[in-house]
Each structure stands twice: as C-alpha cells, then as structure tokens.
Amino acid sequence: MIALTSAHASGVTVSSLALALSGARPSLLAECDAKGGSIRTGYRMGEWGGEVGLWHLAQADREDKLAEAFEAHLRRLDADGARLWLPGLTDPLQAAAMAQTWDALGLLLQAMDQHAGYDVVIDAGRLVVEPGGVHPSLYPRPLLHRADLVLLVVRNTLTSVAQSLPLARCLQLELEERGSGADALRLLLVQEGDVPEHEITRRLQIPVIGTLPWEEKGGRLLTHGTVRQVKPASMRLFKHARQTAHAVQVDASTRRLRMQLPPASVASPKVAGVVQRLLAPRQDVKISG
C-alpha cells in the first residue's frame, strides 16, 4: 500500500491516477485528500456526485458498518473493473467527520492490498502540518502510518524542491515516530523544470523511486476526462507510470520482507467478507460503473 502526498500543488491526483491505471495488477485508488476530491468531476466527468464517497463511510463507521459501506461505495475506475476507486470528499468541511475513521479505513485498505491482491494507491493530497508534526484531523495521517511507502511528489523546479524540504523532514519524523520508519519515504518527480535528479536527491536526502513526464495530453485526460476514444498506453505519461508502478511494487514488497512487517489483520468477519468477495472472479464482483 502506497500513499502519495506533496508540499504544494504538485500533481498528486494526476500521479495517483496514472499509477493506479498503469500497474500490472488490479488496483484500488482511495481518494483521501481532506480538502476534497476532484476525480468525480474531472477524470470521471461528473458521473457520480455526493451520493458516494468517503463522507458516508464516517457515518457508517459510527454505526459499526464500515466494511459494508466501503464495499458499497467502491466504483470502477476502468471499463473491466480490474481497477477500483473509492471517491473522496465533496466538501472540505466533511474532513472533521473522518478524523475517527481514517485508522479503521487504513486497516481495511491494508487488508485489500495484502490479502485481496489489489495494489492500493492513496491520494492523500497536500500535506497539512501543525507545530509538532502532521495535522491529526485536517489530514489523513493514519494512512501514512500504515503505508508501505510514502511518495512525496515533487516537481523538478527550484521552488518545488525548496518548498518540499521542510515538509520532507516533517514527514520523516512522523514516519519514524508513528509509521514504519523514516526510510519509507520516497520521491516521485514530475519533470516540469530542469533541476537534475541527482541535485534533488542531494538536497532532500531522499531516494527517487520514479519520474513522470510533464505531458499535456495525458495530464489533461486525467484532470478533465474525455469523451473521445483514447489510447492511454501510447502516452509517455502512462509508459513512465508503468515503470514507476513496477518499481514501487518491488520496493514495497522488498521493504516489507526485509523489515518483517506483520500482515494486516483480517480478524473482523466483516472485513474478511469484503476481502473474500473481492477475491471472487471479476464477473461475480458487483461494482457500479
């Protein structure tokens, strides 16, 4: 399970979508930006509204029905249903309702990643901090703690690198104290500028796991959607995303084995039921389009 975040507007949602749509295995993209999601009005072009999404999971969690609501609010991200999407919030004011649900949701997403065969990609949005660390209610902090890797999305410009440096240190401290360690942090570079990769690595002291090109056509598709027939596989953005998705999967698996991290618990019969249903043959899984 990986989480993507940034220090500023660096293209976290586009990067998350590109990885979720490009990996070799089935994927699940959880849109967890506390400021609100943009996929339903962008890439999905208004196909779904506020009747689905994270806010409903908070209410279900208070009624001890989170697992059932999680399954009910999954939507297809592609035509064949191999790639799923959990829509995000529609209003930043809804984020406060999620404060007590992020951790339970993180456990469920972790189980989906480790037991149901999905590569889980979390769009955590822009990092929100307060004195002492990552903000506990205005940011999905528990999801970072459960992630195998956290990707800090940085553009290769001097401004982006400078803005990312203090928040990168904050992230490292957060992961060291509450997550699986500071070495879970990686950089995902968006090639908009001309600062070389080795210079960014030197300044931030964090390894780069992949790069995505600044491609207008691919970015527009993921930001606004399209009614035209397109072939994403032919776009440079998706070619690079496939390479990065593979590198992420190998790195996360290797790190988990090296650290001997325990698997996510599926002790809850409700969570186990969701996992088992999503392990069923694809044609038997009832997911809305």
Rank of each mutant, 00 (worst) to 15 (best):
L151F: 11
V250H: 05
R282G: 13
L222V: 14
H240V: 09
L144S: 07
V150P: 01
K65H: 12
G273Q: 01
M98T: 10
P92D: 01
P232D: 07
R75P: 02
P281C: 11
G53H: 06
I39K: 04
A245G: 05
V129C: 14
L221Q: 11
S137R: 15
Q260F: 11
D119P: 02
M45G: 09
G42A: 07
A168F: 00
Q110K: 15
G218E: 02
L171W: 02
K217C: 03
Q110E: 14
L89Y: 05
L278R: 03
A79C: 08
G193D: 05
A82N: 08
D123Y: 03
T13V: 04
R141T: 09
H198E: 14
A280R: 12
A18W: 11
P131G: 08
H73F: 10
Y43M: 14
D80W: 01
G273D: 08
R242Y: 02
E216N: 05
V128G: 00
R25L: 08
P92S: 01
E47Q: 12
V285S: 05
G132Q: 01
A99G: 11
A184R: 08
D33Y: 01
G133M: 07
A99Q: 09
A280V: 04
G106K: 13
A9W: 00
S38R: 14
S15H: 09
W85H: 13
L105E: 01
E174W: 11
G46D: 05
R155T: 01
E130I: 12
S234F: 13
V195R: 02
P269E: 07
P207M: 07
A58N: 12
M259T: 14
L77A: 04
T244L: 12
L84E: 02
G218M: 03
L89K: 11
D103W: 10
R228Y: 13
G88F: 09
Y118C: 10
V275C: 03
L189I: 13
Q163G: 10
L19H: 08
G88A: 05
R178P: 09
T13C: 04
L74K: 03
A245T: 10
P262G: 04
A241C: 07
V271H: 05
T159Y: 02
T41F: 14
H73R: 03
E63P: 00
A272R: 13
G218K: 06
E215S: 02
L152Y: 01
E176K: 13
S234G: 15
A272C: 02
Q94T: 12
T201P: 06
L237D: 05
G42N: 04
L21E: 10
A124V: 00
E47T: 10
K270W: 11
T226M: 12
T101A: 12
L173V: 13
D64I: 12
V161A: 03
R75D: 00
L212I: 03
L17Q: 11
R62F: 12
L189N: 07
D80N: 12
L175D: 03
L188Q: 02
T159M: 12
S234A: 15
E31Q: 10
L108T: 05
G42T: 10
A9Y: 00
R220Y: 13
K270V: 07
R228E: 15
A3D: 03
P269N: 00
S137W: 14
R169K: 15
D284Q: 15
I200G: 08
R282L: 14
